[in-house]
Design a protein around this nucleic acid. Sequence first.
RNA 1: GACCCCAUCGUCUAGCGGUUAGGACACCACCCUUUCAAGGUGGGAACACGGGUUCGAUCCCCGUUGGGGUCGCCA
Length: 477
Amino acid sequence: MAAIVTRFAPSPTGMLHIGGVRTALINWLFARRYGGCYLVRIEDTDRKRSTPEAISAIEHDLRWLDLQGDAAIGFQSTRLERHQEVALQILDAGKAYRCQCSPEELDAMRSEARAAGRTRVYDRRCREAKLAPDTQCVVRLKVPTSGETVIEDIIQGSIAMENDHLDDYILLRVDGTPTYMLSCVVDDADMGISHVVRGDDHINNAFRQLQLIRAVNFPEPAYAHLPLLHGDDGAKLSKRHGALGIAHYQEQGYLPEALLNYLMRLGWGKGEEILSLSQAAEIFDLAEMSKAPAQVDFARLNYFNAQYIRSLADHDADGLIDRMAEFGHSKYTSLQQGLLRRGILSLSQRTETLQELILAAEIYLKAPKWPLQESKAEKQFLSKVPNAGLDQIRVQCPDWDFSNAVTLKNHIEQHVAKHGVEFGQVGQPLRIALTGTMRAPDISEIMHTLGCVEVQQRIISALEYAHKVMKYPTTTR
RNA sequence: GACCCCAUCGUCUAGCGGUUAGGACACCACCCUUUCAAGGUGGGAACACGGGUUCGAUCCCCGUUGGGGUCGCCA
């Protein structure tokens, strides 16, 4: 078999959305599976609609996802002359012709065709006119008027289309620039693309592109048309869903590998659900993909992201902390890093995104500010603090072993037993004194993470506040 | 409207003629428990419909319905 070469070919007319990323990912996966090459090409032949902002956004997004392609990103606009050359070649061969129909005439044909229930719009009136090169006109491809074109699509199976339903579509515009149909086919051929893997909104293009490929005798690529993704409301997903731009997911604190893992599982169910890209690349195949469209489900995406965050916290805490710093555009001091290293695992069990993780980590990086933001927590604290003996804990701290949470738990349990109360009567106010919130990790976990000195200081601050508002004694002395 | 495609729990999926239709997310209950989680156990929940083919259809064929895509001098 010839070398496998795939490509992802976004047009820079807007944000890269989740559907486009999935297409890129599938291209990547397939190329990797068969030791092939995955390329990226920007389809910017429409210079009116392509923007430099969109191009840099796409480059940024692909870099974030690490789906940049195995060679430098190509730009279709740089290959104008080659596209024109091929068009002229087809023209010379008599397989294309000049057409001078105006947009107005075409509009008329369009409504006529629609009214008549015809798929083909253009009535081919210039087909045999043999217009001179100097007249203002476009170049159209002569599509066979009979027979049918069959695509053996790797995902969709065999799809047939009657040639008479196909238009003599435009290759070169009036201004001489190539259309997408032309440049796509030429670039695919010149880049040696063996497998065209794209959204199934391109199925109809495949029939038409095949006519062009045959007209110029390019090798025919294999096709695989992916069913499109739908939004969670069942509506179609598109560039117009601004909120679904990939940058949005990055800003929310999703991990690219989690997003990709989630996306990979839409339409492909082989192997374990949580599968790294390299694991997936070992077993992936296009033929196994579902023909049915899938809806994106953010709850499920969150689950995948949470799994990745937890696994990172468990196996590569420093790596995760680095990513938190990067995400928050901040740099942690070595003291803070130490705190995070100790606390990250239990924090990760209650967060789904980097953003949430950073927020949750504040309990270790910042002492609670009294009065508390969380008034319910403050009420809870004030009501239980008189019987909790927090100051005794503070005094005993230096004698306790802070090196791990298990021994700390024993110390606290002994303290609780001495007081003859329920654990919660001490644990609750202590947790709030230490973190300022009721939603926090295990109390001994918190103390272990914070360390003796910080625990003492936070207890003092909390008791001072209690004293201030309810004349509660700050020390046992 | 014409053409093309699709159809298993709410969602993502497994299934490739004979299964108690499996798993995951979400949801509910219980357990664990010092809060919040995580974890564990259990539960409800699906083959769109109608015809065939067959001893037997979720699976094969044909319709219907529903959904999607395309119909640009956009890509």
